[in-house]
Nucleic acid binder design. Structure first.
Length: 617
DNA sequence: ACGCAGACTTGGAACAATATTA
DNA sequence: TAATATTGTTCCAAGTCTGCGT
């Protein structure tokens, strides 16, 4: 059944993409209105067609447990382009003298050269790791010469790449267009697969190019050489009766398997941490969407039992068993502060970061009294991606007493919860509710916070801009809860200033308009003639418009300032049940495009289709 | 219970495309 | 129209969590 259906659809979508090219080009040549009208009609038609084309997997029945697909066909990964040697006039210098490097050595040199003005290259660990790995790939002759990184001069190579990227930016429109077409062709060929009769977009269809590993935070492996992925490293996963992808000319796959209990299309082992990397589908795909939906359904089930769970962990604060007490306090942190679970990590292999269960004594300070509050716990640790978590929280007396107990006779570097780890915690959670694990609390608390904040902040009298500010504020509350931070944008100060200038100018305009209105009113009082009356109306309208514009600018400024160091994206994409947002949009007449861009709408297509304005998380 | 591999989600930064401003 | 700011996309690292073997 899927076969025939699929073919038809494939054809349709191809037609569509060809059509898309033309209207844009022809528009300029035609008279504006005529062209646009035609364009509009066509766009509408296309939209409708696309609608029909979309796979509404959420209306279908679910597969049996564990089986993820019955048909899977794809082209395999698209491999990173091979190394292109430097032109002869671009040289590497050792100890002030030019030195021609072997191809492999040169390639690795370019990795370092490209990063020259990055802070990474100033770090000793980075330099050492790089130099060690580089030397390993050198010929024995090179090894004898190149013994000191400080004597290596990559500046000419660096300049070559800077110039190259400048040149690429300066390319003419036509050349850029050509480049884009080539990229699109690759995307068309390798960027999609057929899954159960439907053409689905792949998330990452390219293998990662070789380069220098950039860990985050204080990573012991930063600067190490990330090797080129070859077909011989790659395991292909596809359907038994589908066409097996061809390896590149002269190469073989490491393995081809037909495992329909997993969702990946290809995998390889990465040489830095010796872990697997996968090629998987785009978030808009059924496989990802269904899982996402399910995630929110689990979180909604938690809503029904969370009161019971809270009551229980509070009771457990008094348990005779130390293990239970630790579990109860940790769970309290996870619930109240939205901390991550905190798996153990292998020491020396990664940056030293922690989550709840892996907190150490040195990460918290206890203050019996602080700033007028009692029982304050001061958290200060590096979490995922070495993002700092800093928070002062007033906690229940029992929690405070327990923490004192857990810390007694311990060194700063000792585990706070020495009788607990994530698997103990998760096993317990699983026993409380099917499918419950630590991360569900983050999802649940994020989503419920959004719903509550939207309820509290939205004013139906507001215009769309005002409502959007409320939305952003609700979103922000969640991002703060989850500690989603970003570095202040480089242009922040400047763009804030620009905005202020605009606001001042607008204020001026408003004042002027007020005066003019006054004048017009006075004139009308004197003359009482119709023309003057009309003029009053006109001035009133102008004033109103200007005031609205001013209000909008002020809203923008507030939003910007409040958002300075907060990253909203992650919560929006991963923690907030999209149905909450969609229901809100429908309820308050805010177009969905205002809160979700195209990619986001594709990811949340299931939610957009199924949520109505009364959806309750 | 424990360690480990595997599979999958979550995360900020870098880069590219687009919109806005000068 | 070029320069700049903003928004969207890609990249790939870094988490979580389950299941399996011992």
């Amino acid at each position: 059944k899927p076969e025939g259906k699929m073919k038809e659809k494939g054809k349709k979508s191809k037609e569509k993409s060809e059509e898309e090219e033309t209207p844009g080009k022809t528009r300029k040549r035609k008279s504006k209105e005529e062209g646009e009208e035609k364009n509009n009609k066509k766009a509408k038609k296309e939209k409708k067609e696309e609608e029909e084309n979309k796979w509404k997997w959420w209306e279908e029945e679910k597969k049996e447990d564990g089986v993820k697909w019955t048909q899977l066909e794809h082209r395999g990964p698209y491999f990173a382009p091979l190394y292109e040697p430097l032109p002869d006039d671009v040289q590497f210098y050792y100890d002030g003298k030019p030195l021609k490097l072997s191809l492999a050595t040169e390639e690795i040199a370019t990795f370092y050269a490209k990063m020259l003005d990055h802070e990474y290259t100033t770090k000793e660990i980075f330099q050492n790791n790089f130099f060690n790995d580089w030397r390993k790939e050198m010929t024995s002759k090179e090894q004898k010469i190149i013994k000191d990184l400080d004597k290596c001069d990559f500046r000419e190579i660096h300049k070559y790449f800077v110039d190259k990227s400048e040149a690429r930016k300066a390319l003419s429109k036509e050349e850029k267009q050509k480049l884009k077409e080539e990229a699109d062709k690759i995307q068309e060929e390798y960027g999609y697969c057929i899954l159960d009769g439907h053409r689905e977009k792949i998330g990452n269809f390219k293998t990662e190019p070789p380069g220098l590993f950039r860990g985050r935070g204080d990573h012991p492996k930063m600067g190490m050489l990330k090797k080129r992925i070859m077909p011989e490293d790659v395991v292909i996963n596809c359907g038994k009766d589908s066409k097996i992808p061809e390896p590149p000319e002269g190469h073989k796959w490491k393995e081809v398997r037909f495992d329909n209990t997993v969702t990946w299309l290809a995998s390889w082992t990465e040489n830095i941490q010796n872990t697997l990397k996968y090629i998987m589908l785009n978030p808009s795909s059924k496989l990802k969407g269904e899982k996402d939906w399910q995630k929110y359904e689990v979180a909604r089930r938690l809503k029904d039992v969370v009161h019971k769970i809270r009551a229980q962990y509070q009771a457990d604060w008094k348990s005779k068993e130390m293990k239970k007490r630790q579990r109860a306090v940790a769970l309290y942190f996870i619930d109240k502060l939205a901390l991550r679970a905190g798996n153990e990590k292998e020491e020396g292999e990664t940056a030293d970061t922690v989550g709840c269960c892996s907190l150490r004594v040195e990460h918290i300070k206890l203050h019996p009294k602080l700033d007028g509050q009692e029982h304050v716990v001061e958290f200060d640790f590096l979490g995922k991606d070495s993002i700092r978590y800093y928070n002062k929280v007033s906690v229940e007396k029992l929690v405070f007493k327990n923490l004192q107990l857990f810390m007694k006779n311990k060194d700063p570097a000792d585990d706070l919860f020495d009788r607990l780890n994530t698997s103990i915690l998760n096993r317990h959670l699983q026993s409380l509710m099917d499918g419950l694990s630590a991360k569900v609390f983050r999802t649940y608390n994020a989503s419920i916070t959004l719903q509550e904040q939207l309820k509290a902040l939205t004013n139906s009298e507001d215009n769309v801009a005002g409502k959007l500010l409320s939305y952003n504020r609700a979103n922000r509350a969640v991002a703060i809860l989850c500690n989603h931070q970003r570095s202040t944008p480089k242009t922040f100060e400047k763009s804030m200033q620009n905005l202020q200038t605009k606001i001042d100018a607008k204020k001026q305009q408003v004042e002027e308009a007020q005066q003019e209105l006054k004048k017009a009113e006075d004139e009308f009082k004197d003359t009482k003639d119709a023309k003057a009356e009309a003029n009053v109306e006109k001035k009133k309208k102008l004033l109103k418009r200007l005031e609205e514009q001013l209000a909008k600018l002020n809203v923008q400024a507030t939003d910007k300032e409040e958002n300075k160091q907060i990253a909203l994206g992650t919560s929006k994409l991963n923690y907030l049940d999209p149905r909450i947002s969609i229901a809100w949009c429908k309820k308050f007449g805010v177009p969905i495009e205002k809160i979700y861009n195209k990619t986001q709408r594709e990811k949340f297509a299931w939610a957009i289709d199924m949520a109505d304005e009364d959806f309750e998380f």
